[in-house]
């Protein structure tokens, strides 16, 4: 088969035409609804916690913790991947999706042991979030320090 650069280019054009696109509108509607609902759940938890007379930071921290718990729990019982298959970014982007991305490898790599399996693999998906989140915070921190 002709594998020249030109032939490759032509073939990739052919591939583009033959490959069905994701049903982006339908996916966006699903992501919107599920993502919106998860945020409303967060708002509700927030409102309930406020009644206990906690400080503002405590309320938002506990809200995160509870959402993370829910994400981890529904991952464990095997529901979150089904929700993700339906909702796409709607369940990936909220913090429950962060919990899912930590819990899923932890559960999956249990067979490789608790140190090199669960321990080492827990952050194969979420690790970059923490790495680049921290780096970004240092950058804006530096900026803030010198300009305040």
């Amino acid at each position: 088969m002709n594998q020249s650069e030109l032939a490759k280019e032509r073939y990739l054009e052919l591939v583009k035409k033959a490959t069905p696109n994701s049903k982006i509108l339908k996916n966006c509607v699903k992501a919107f609804i599920i993502g919106g609902l998860i945020c409303c759940l967060g708002q509700f938890i927030h409102a309930v916690l406020e009644r206990f007379g906690l400080s503002k930071t405590e309320v938002s921290s506990y809200t995160s913790i509870i959402l993370v718990f829910l994400g981890a729990f529904f991952t464990g019982i095997g529901w979150y991947d089904k929700l993700g298959n339906f909702a796409g970014a709607g369940s990936i982007v909220p913090i429950t999706g962060f919990a899912n991305s930590v819990t899923a490898p932890a559960v999956e790599f249990k067979k490789e042991g608790f140190i090199l399996g669960v321990g080492a693999k827990m952050f194969i998906v979420a690790g970059p979030v923490i790495v680049y989140g921290t780096l970004a915070s240092v950058l804006v921190g530096l900026f803030y320090f010198f300009t305040r």
């Binding site: 919107f32 599920i34 993502g35 970014a89 982007v93 909220p94």
Partner: peptide, 11 residues
Amino acid sequence: VGGLICVIGQI
């Protein structure tokens, strides 16, 4: 707002 942020992710 929550839904729209997720829609950006979906796109």
